[in-house]
Write a protein that binds this DNA or RNA. Structure first.
Lengths: 202, 202
DNA sequence: GCACATCCGTACCGATCGGTACCGAAGGAG
DNA sequence: CTCCTTCGGTACCGATCGGTACGGATGTGC
């Protein structure tokens, strides 16, 4: 007996909501928001259409929840990378983590946060904007971390934290696109290491 | 009187086919292949639906022709960049050109070759694959150019032409994504210059 | 003039889109 | 047991999707 909520009224849900969400992540990841139809989603999740709507609200809400789960799961390397001891180690961990996450065997290639909705029609604009904000948030986290690096002296005083953060995010975006195009993990690791060659030295 | 084909039989076309194609480029560029509906396209092009089909075949064929026109027009900087005197000048021209093309005032942000169809549903896979091939072709051109650079001695003998080409394309992809996310031209120019800092020195 | 070929747009096609009304089933509370 | 709430799926909704049949218009070649 766990200490979870005692037991909600009504008929209990017959499927694992997190497992279903994981399946939705894979569909959105490989086909994008607009390319993923409700039939694609319900088939992959193993549930009927009304069940999906009861559990997640709408296709758009499902996407947001899938993005959240993706962030906390397959992209958790990012939060760990921010905790690396030096700014240089952060940069290395971010790019290496990006390469690994974007070329994970058994998963779609690339990054949900990039290819989920890069250019869309008018009605999917909120989703596109949410992904822009998602990427922007990553830049903001990196900027703060590199400002700490400047303050702590592991970056030169002349270093521009925002520029470095934008640079990392740009290279990570590019890696995601190349992974989606079929580039291999070893190739992209070389690219990441080459990009790290411009990292400011003390 | 020009020296074009004398005059085809039948009723002459009432619109400029290249101008219509330019409009289609803008629609595909900003909304992507899947996000661009036929109503979006016909409205922007100023022609009716059957006219579009007579002139271009299908939505998919229209996209391919739009991509071709985009390549020869707004992305012609790439061909010029390849003709720069040294490998380093090529790299600089490619990234600077990418930034400019991706942040051109009055045009959609980003790059049609990236956001036109990055992740799609099953039925749009040929379009996605065509864009992968389009980007791959750019890498192949750069690889050959940098091999010339190694042979000519403007790159160190240890330089890997393919890796350098993949690196440039990766950064260019990332710049395109960031431009589509709203990053400014000056910001991205700084990013491009930072990326060029890893360029191998003689 | 007459054929002929191509273009024009209106009005339509079946298919698929995202989303929901409905009703029976399955649980807890009294 | 009865009530109540939520879940289950079938079967459907209007809207939009990409694509086309068709009849009138407009040009060239004879």
């Amino acid at each position: 007996m766990t200490s979870t909520t005692p037991a909600p009224p009504g008929r209990p849900r017959a499927f694992d909501i997190d497992e279903a969400l994981d399946r939705a992540v894979l569909v959105f990841w490989s086909k994008g928001f607009e390319g993923a139809s409700l039939d694609d989603l319900t088939e992959a999740m193993g549930i009927s259409r009304p069940s999906l709507y009861r559990a997640f609200g709408s296709k758009e809400d499902l996407f947001y929840k899938a993005l959240e789960r993706y962030t906390e799961g397959l992209t958790s390397y990012f939060a760990r990378a921010l905790a690396a001891p030096t700014s240089g180690a952060v940069a290395t961990a971010v790019l290496h983590g990006t390469v690994e996450a974007a070329t994970m065997p058994g998963f779609p290639t690339g990054c949900l946060g990039v290819q989920g909705a890069l250019a869309t029609g008018e009605e999917s604009r909120p989703v596109r904007d949410a992904l822009i904000a998602w990427r922007e948030e990553g830049i903001a986290h990196l900027t703060r971390r590199f400002q700490q690096g400047v303050d702590a002296g592991d970056l030169p005083p002349s270093a521009d934290p925002h520029l470095l953060a934008l640079y990392l995010r740009t290279v990570a975006n590019g890696i995601a696109v190349q992974a989606a195009s079929g580039s291999s993990r070893p190739e992209l690791l070389q690219v990441a290491n080459l990009a790290l060659g411009s990292w400011p030295k003390l």
